[in-house]
């Protein structure tokens, strides 16, 4: 009898835990769900219904508008051109910063020399400085180099301030590899780059995936550098989205806003769904270490 009541109360407790977890999951999901619902309604439905009322049908007008004809500040071409801009910025910036980070991490972890730890320490601080403190000089430098308002300029900025993190990732990964790996290869006469290419790089797949995902999310989601250093035709999608939402010619179009926001969020969400494990690993590696 006593036993029974105890299991019953334990059962109750477990139901409570599951209930709470499910409720929290619903709360976390609600904004995304509301965005999706709103993007499928027309303005009349939005005004007459509530956030959670279902659309009368699948109406993709708002998506079409957001994609190709909504106004973002000066022009009215939707956010698709800016989505392309984001890719043009993100792809080279991720590739370069990952490569440089891999080489730096390889040196700092496996070819230590007097001063290499100091170098790493100096670099680490770069993970934490508030970027406001470099914006003004960087703006002057970019215009001096003739790169103001260009995609190249933005790629450069993202590489410069991304290296600290990518080096950190690779260094922490390489520190965990056995050192005999390279001392044996050195005895066999293999050089710096041969060891890197033949031995280290083939072992690096997991950390490359983590770094690429981290950098992709960071740079795709950047707004600060985008708003300060881009021109009207090189804006990344985050800046364009913000302009779209805050431009209002004759009445707010919440459905178009939501469709545009979903489009801007889709690439990183997709990466998260497909490679969530690596995403979490990047977050904790980039955050806990330091």
């Amino acid at each position: 009898m006593l036993d029974n009541s105890r299991t019953a109360s334990q059962q109750l407790l477990r139901w409570g835990i599951y209930g709470l977890l499910a409720l929290m999951a619903l709360i976390y999901l609600m904004p995304l769900w509301v965005m999706l619902l709103t993007s499928l309604k027309d303005i009349e439905e939005i005004r007459s219904g509530t956030l959670l009322s279902l659309p009368q049908g699948l109406n993709f007008d708002a998506w079409q508008k957001a994609w190709s004809s909504a106004c973002t500040g000066g022009t009215c071409e939707g956010i698709s051109p800016y989505l392309a801009n984001s890719f043009l910025i993100v792809i080279p910036a991720v590739a370069i910063s990952t490569l440089v980070g891999a080489l730096n991490g390889y040196v700092v972890a496996m070819w230590r020399f007097r001063g290499s730890e100091l170098f790493f320490g100096l670099l680490l601080v770069g993970c934490f400085i508030p970027f406001q403190v470099v914006l003004l000089p960087m703006a002057r430098t970019l215009s001096f180099l003739g790169l103001a308002n260009t995609t190249t300029g933005l790629v450069l900025v993202h590489v410069v301030y991304g290296i600290a993190f990518t080096t950190l990732f690779f260094r922490n990964f390489y520190v965990g590899l056995p050192r005999e790996l390279i001392s044996a290869a050195r005895l066999d006469g293999a050089g710096f780059f041969t060891i890197f290419r033949r031995i280290i790089l083939p072992l690096s797949t997991p950390i490359i995936v983590v770094t690429v995902i981290w950098q992709f999310t960071q740079i795709w989601n950047d707004f600060l550098f985008g708003v300060v250093f881009s021109g009207s035709d090189t804006q990344p999608v985050t800046v364009a989205l913000n302009n779209l939402v805050n431009t209002s010619f004759g009445g707010k179009q919440y459905n178009v806003d939501m469709a545009a926001a979903l489009i801007a969020a889709l690439p990183t969400l997709l990466v998260y769904v497909l490679a969530g494990k690596y995403f979490v690993r990047g977050l904790t590696a980039g955050a806990v270490k330091g």
Partner: peptide, 16 residues
């Protein structure tokens, strides 16, 4: 589910 908002830009979060 609890973690997915972290993948989204603050601009999207703000808009939503």
């Amino acid at each position: 589910i609890y973690l997915y908002p972290m993948a989204i830009s603050f601009i999207v979060t703000g808009t939503a």
